[in-house]
Write a protein that binds this DNA or RNA. Structure first.
Lengths: 178, 178
DNA sequence: GGTGCCATGTAACGAGTTACATGATTGG
DNA sequence: CCAATCATGTAACTCGTTACATGGCACC
């Protein structure tokens, strides 16, 4: 049910089309949830049928028409209820850790390559997050309520990527010392 | 395809039955991959058909019979190939972060409760991981190759949980300062 | 003339969840 | 006597991925 709620959360922040939603799920919101455009269109028509969102047809010139969805009162209520419901920490699933776990059946170099690749990827992610932090969240105390919560998700992203980079370093060190 | 590889990784470390596998996916291996027993049995028969694993029937007294699966040469090769293949960092999906993102549409208390609950859960996870570290991985330099890699996955778990606790603290502080 | 953006969808398949099903033994 | 542990599975369903499909406009 979480995709539904992630969509509601995104639409309540800013009404938009399925296409735009897909982009957001690929960008900022993408740090904590993702979905392909196919999934999004499927879910949007479901939410529409439930009456949690309503579409408004927008005709455009030079561009295809689009449906801009907004969250209804019923939809907002459902989202609020869901937020208040207790939930357990998500379970981790990670390819790389499966590979590390069986690392002893391949050459050390193979593992080191994987680690280096991931290290690099996390460094890049971290850097884009840090840039966002500097641009939009200079002094956290003075943010609006909604911006404060966005800031917290960004902070989570920064901590997450930092921790990955540090672990990659630790792992590479341990293996290099043989 | 990752469940298949996670199963191979687990079986190569220690041949066992579907039932035992399910337990492991619920325990130690569970930090980086999980699967229900239904999924596991389904996958095991698939891997058996592919010839990547072979079952051995074990008749037991006082307990139901069981099939103990071992990884074949072909299976090991497939796993090695998969490990060497480059892969991208897994995408994060997190309920709590969706809730935080929309935190401004509910009462602050609701969010603080969620944060406190998660903080507690992560503290407990962290403590069990730290206990494992102390019991089995006293001096990392002298571990066998396979234990070294297991140790690294544990270290990832410790860093992961630590980072969660720290973020929960940061978030609660920011909200409390209003 | 080709690539990429805007915009929306269908169809088939694979992965994951929930519910149902069975049956013996051990421990409180 | 009830619950838990050991042990294996089927069936129905939802969620997520991959491939296919269309079509105009802008830019190089």
């Amino acid at each position: 049910m979480s995709l539904a709620h992630a969509i509601l959360a995104s639409l309540i922040d800013d009404s938009c089309s399925g296409y735009t939603l897909a982009k957001q799920f690929d960008g900022s919101v993408g740090f904590f949830w993702q979905a392909s455009h196919q999934q999004i269109y499927r879910e949007l028509s479901k939410l529409d049928k439930l009456g949690w969102i309503v579409p408004e047809m927008i005709t455009q010139e030079g561009k295809p028409d689009k449906k801009v969805y907004s969250v209804t009162q019923a939809g907002k209520l459902k989202l609020q209820e869901w937020i208040a419901q207790p939930c357990e920490p998500m379970q981790v699933k990670d390819d790389l850790l499966v590979k590390i776990f069986s690392g002893y059946i391949v050459s050390e170099q193979t593992i080191l390559q994987q680690l280096e690749h991931h290290r690099q990827a996390h460094i890049e992610k971290l850097s884009t997050y840090r840039n966002l932090e500097q641009k939009y969240f200079q002094n956290p105390q003075q943010l609006s309520q909604s911006a404060k919560f966005q800031y917290l998700t960004l902070r989570k992203g920064i901590r997450y990527e930092t921790q990955w980079v540090e672990w990659c370093n630790e792992a590479m060190e341990l293996l290099n010392k043989n």
